[in-house]
Nucleic acid binder design. Structure first.
Lengths: 170, 170
DNA sequence: GGGATATAATTCGCATCTTAACTATATAGC
DNA sequence: GCTATATAGTTAAGATGCGAATTATATCCC
């Protein structure tokens, strides 16, 4: 389902449940667009900035993470990390170095430029997030609980009637 | 901001607010992946299916909509609609026909195949949505209210300190 | 030691999104 | 009628997402 999908259907398929689900998409999309706009003004993308925060805050003693670690921590497919780090390397934000012990790994580190840009942008981003928090703490807790409930259900329940074997012939 | 972003940061930047925001992304992403998996088993994408539902349910008397109408109703950029309808046309789901009155328009309609596939998949999708609704109706209402509150705030508040003019030099 | 297995990264093909520029067509106002 | 403006659709360039296949490297187990 798209993040921005049939919000204007005249005949909602199910009344409230569907509205709640679509609201999640719509809200996530609004927040995403907002963040895009923010980071874009610094020549970054949201994903790039999040990689930089990862590297900046928990890049280990030497400040580096493997692509697999980045992939796992950001829940982004490995295949995407390759191109993402390519672009960030080209932009001078990070650099790949060879791992000493295991030649399968790349160690990705922030460059000096990446570090200074992070130091400049992160406080503003934190301020953004703070101002975006319109909900009371109690509401926030409630929201988190509800979303986790939804997520657990979505993850654990098997797909219904999922038998693509017999396709409709054209 | 990615839908699947730094959920595992060891040092959350702001405690609860940030967690709530990230939860929205994460949940939306889970739901999206789930829907992707569902539609994929029928050779469709989520967006394609939503176009089919649009055309099937409110394609007007003759069952057709212009690309601009589809774009507006699905909140999808016009530029994306072109390629989307291209792919759906190639897959035999829809067809473009010329509008009689205004030669700028295409009228997009479901093909017979598209209509039959919709008739088959939609009930299963509705069942999916129903089962996905783990929240009580009262909770759903609450959730909707909170999400709308967040969305309004995100949309209306100006970006802070957004002055990209003076870039950090490398 | 050597073969089977697992992991890290890359590559490929494809879908989707954005913005911006472009073409063709309508329409409104002088 | 003619020019300015608006609208519909297309195209292009770039970022991101996915799954699947490939390559290089480690590791495990016999």
């Amino acid at each position: 389902m798209s993040l921005q999908t049939d919000l204007h259907m005249k005949e909602p398929i199910t009344p409230l449940a569907r509205e709640a689900m679509l609201n999640i998409y719509h809200t996530a999309n609004c927040i995403k667009k907002r963040a895009d706009e923010f980071f874009r003004s610094y020549g970054l993308s949201d994903v790039q900035f999040n990689v930089m925060m990862l590297l900046g805050h928990q890049g280990g003693a030497e400040g580096g993470l493997s692509q697999a670690q980045i992939s796992a921590m950001m829940l982004v497919n490995r295949a995407n990390i390759t191109a993402l780090i390519d672009r960030m390397e080209k932009a001078g934000l990070v650099e790949r170095t060879a791992a000493p012990t295991d030649r399968r790994y790349n160690i990705v580190k922030l460059t000096g430029y990446g570090r200074s840009l992070l130091a400049r942008v992160e406080p503003l981003y934190i301020e953004e997030i703070k101002q975006a928090a319109v909900l009371e703490p109690a509401e926030q807790k409630q929201l988190i609980v509800m979303l986790e409930k939804i997520r657990r259900n979505v993850s654990e329940r098997p797909l219904i009637n999922n038998k693509p074997k017999t396709e409709i012939s054209r």
